[in-house]
Each structure stands twice: as structure tokens, then as C-alpha cells.
Design a protein around this nucleic acid. Sequence first.
DNA 1: GCGCCATGTCACAGTTTCATGACAGAACGC
DNA 2: GCGTTCTGTCATGAAACTGTGACATGGCGC
Lengths: 224, 224
Amino acid sequence: MAGILLVEDDPSVRTALELALTRQGHSVTSYATGEEALDHVRSRRPEIAILDVMLPGMDGVEVCRRIRRLDQLPVILLTARGDDLDVVVGLEAGADDYVVKPVEPRVLDARIRAILRRAESAASDRISFGDLMIDRGALKVTLAGKEIHLTPTELRLLLELVRHPGQVLNRRYLLRAVWDHTHVADSRLVDACVQRVRAKIEPRPAEPVFIHTVRGFGYRFSPP
Amino acid sequence: MAGILLVEDDPSVRTALELALTRQGHSVTSYATGEEALDHVRSRRPEIAILDVMLPGMDGVEVCRRIRRLDQLPVILLTARGDDLDVVVGLEAGADDYVVKPVEPRVLDARIRAILRRAESAASDRISFGDLMIDRGALKVTLAGKEIHLTPTELRLLLELVRHPGQVLNRRYLLRAVWDHTHVADSRLVDACVQRVRAKIEPRPAEPVFIHTVRGFGYRFSPP
DNA sequence: GCGCCATGTCACAGTTTCATGACAGAACGC
DNA sequence: GCGTTCTGTCATGAAACTGTGACATGGCGC
């Protein structure tokens, strides 16, 4: 469900948590260092970050501070120590929650869901389909982590298609939804624009993975 | 400092917590039952509620649910039991945090402050993005340590953009938020003001690092 | 295989959008 | 009252966007 960024240097703990969270239905990407994690935040825009405090190099609290400057990403800090001072420092650094290891997967899941629910009013809504990530709040589209520049019309078209995944939308509908209704229905306008979007988001535009042509009817967005 | 509503039926715990929180500089009102607490929320609008889960009559989780219906008040649940199930139920009920008794006053204080900070629109009164530091309390902006003078309108615009980091805000929204709604939507007013802010905070206004133009939609503040 | 028609492809010029700087009225402090 | 600062508007030019049509391609029925 959620795109979770996990940072934990101990391989056994990392794989255990990754497995548990994946079982709860989350999509997890994990790293051992804060630097990698920050790159991931910049490029992949996860929904929530879970950071171990004790990390080689940049520690979790510092990663948390930097993440905070990048985005409104919620952050959970994870520590093996029950030291009260850590709690204070961590929360002061802007963490949303603080969990002491070892943690019950179910508890961690509940905390993640609570924080996501709380954040969802403020957070931007983003959806991803395979490599393709669409951030409706930031109006950004990334493909395999690389930002794709779409022009306004292209973006509106893509958003409209994505709003109805799996459904065939005909040209008349798209003309109304994306353009104003002043355009004639028989132009190559929609085709040309679909073409432009494909050129940007499809790995092989000739064999589209996202936007499929339904001959005689229109176009359908269906994730791979 | 903060107006805290404390609900705890055990008189000795109640007075101890009240004393500790008062020492930390908070203003505390405490009750033994949930019904009284709900009246208090309705009449006095506290800033945060700390609820014991085990209460005679209506329990803390139920009080939490009802408070949630009344107001956006942040809630911390307090329990003597470390039972994981309680954590799940409590967080599902919409609590912002969950603290197990006995709790160090300093830890509780840190959690209160963290939640209040998060509640007061997601940040403390001073944030920095790279070289740029914005002090919302003092209404001052510094760039690389040097103070930048922004006019009132420019400052309101920057604060509005910064309130939603990473989000694209369109001109209509900004006109409403920063100016009053008496202005026409198609004016270049927003552009001009953004331009002025850029001239002051961007090292190279032609290649902005902080305030990005999203052609056809609006502007986005995203730190470097 | 053939022809037809729907769709893909592409280049280009008109249009739109935005940055920039100038300016004058409004607001403000002295 | 007077000078200064602030702010909304406008003109201008540059850059980006987009609709269009001509043509190519490919699927489909026959």
C-alpha cells in the first residue's frame, strides 16, 4: 500500500522489518545509509520514512532533519536504546514518532497507518504504477526515479487518463475533459498529445506499456 | 505555555503529573472523568488533551473519539498497560501519541511539544532550507546569515509558499491566501510579487533554487 | 494480398505564458 | 506636508507550448 523508505544498517533487522512490512501490504525500499536514503527521497518520493537512529556516517536524527527540509514526509525514528534523552532529541528534530526496538510488526504497522492518516490531509497525493510515479500535489512525474517534464496539456491529459485506470476514454470525452469544448472532434489533437506523452513516459513508445490504443474507441491507461 | 487538559482518575498520579507539567511551564487543568473533560473541551478549547485510558465510565479511547468529533485537538493517550493491542486500538481511535505509564515528565513534555509543533501547521517558528532561514516568530528571513528585508506582501507570499513545501500553488489560491479576494484572477500580480521575492532570496533569480515556476499551473517552493 | 481507414509521426508557426523592468498611485513614517 | 517605501499595473521580449495539416504506418475486413 504505502511506499515506505526504511533505513537500517543491521542487515538482519533490515530484512526482517522489510519482510514484516511487506506482509502488512506495504511497499518497502531499504538502505543501510542515510545518504542513499536522502537520494531516494529526492528521486522516488516515498510516503513515509522509518529511520534507525544508530547509523554509520550520518545518523538517523540528522537524516530526519534533512528529510524535513526536502519534503513534508512523515518520519518514524527507530532505536535500540530506551534512553529518554534520545526521545527528546528525536522528537525535537521533527520526527513524527519514535519507536523502540524490538518492535511488534503489528504495532509498527498501526503507527505507520496512524501517521499516514494524520499526514494525508497535508501530504500530496501521489500514485505510482510500476516505474511511473505521479505526484498530483507537486505536479511532478518521475519515471524510474528520473523526473519527466510534461507540458501543462500533456500533464492534464495524463492525469485524466490516470483518473480512470483500465477504462477506455474516447476522444470526445478527452477533448472535453482536458481541452475546452471549443475544439472539433475530428482533429488529430488528442492523438498528437497522447503521442507526446508516450514519447516521454513510455520506455518504448512503439509498444506502449501505460497508455494503450483501443482502435475505434480511444485510449486506456492501464498499469503494466 | 500550552493549555493542557489532563484526565486521570487516580488522584495521586493526577496531581503528580499536573505538578510536573506545570513545572515545565504548561498551564494544566485536570479532571477525573471523561464527561467533565468533554465539557471542558467544548467551553475552554484547550490546546492538547492527555487522557488516561482506564477511566471510570467512559474510557480514554472513547473520550478521544468524541474529542475528535468536536475539534482537531491533538490527543495523547496514557496507559499503565504495555499491551500492544491497546496501542493499536488507541491509534486507530485517532490519538496522536500513546505513552505508557510511568512516564518521565521530560519525555511527556517532549512529546507534547512535538505534537503541538506539528499541530501548529507542521513546523516550529524557525525553519531553514539550505542557506535560507525563515523565522516565523520574528518574521525575519536570512540568507547565508545575512538578513534579507522583505516587504509585508512579499513575506506573506513566501510564508504561504513555504507552508506547503513541494506543492504547486496556483495563482488563484495564492491571490486568496496572500491578498484578499478582491483581485481579478488573471492579473500578473502574483508573478510580479514572486519575481520580487526571487530577486531578494535567490542567488541567481534567472535560475531559481527555491521558488520554481510550474508553467500553466503556478509556483512551487522546493528547497534545493 | 489489397485497400481503406484509424492512428502514428513530425515540423512549424501562431499563440500563450512568464520574466523583467519601469512607473505611478497609495500607504506610511517623520 | 513631504519624502520614502510599497504595491499594483503595464509594456516588452524571450521562451515555451500547442494546434494543425501533411504524410507515414499499421491494423482489419474482405
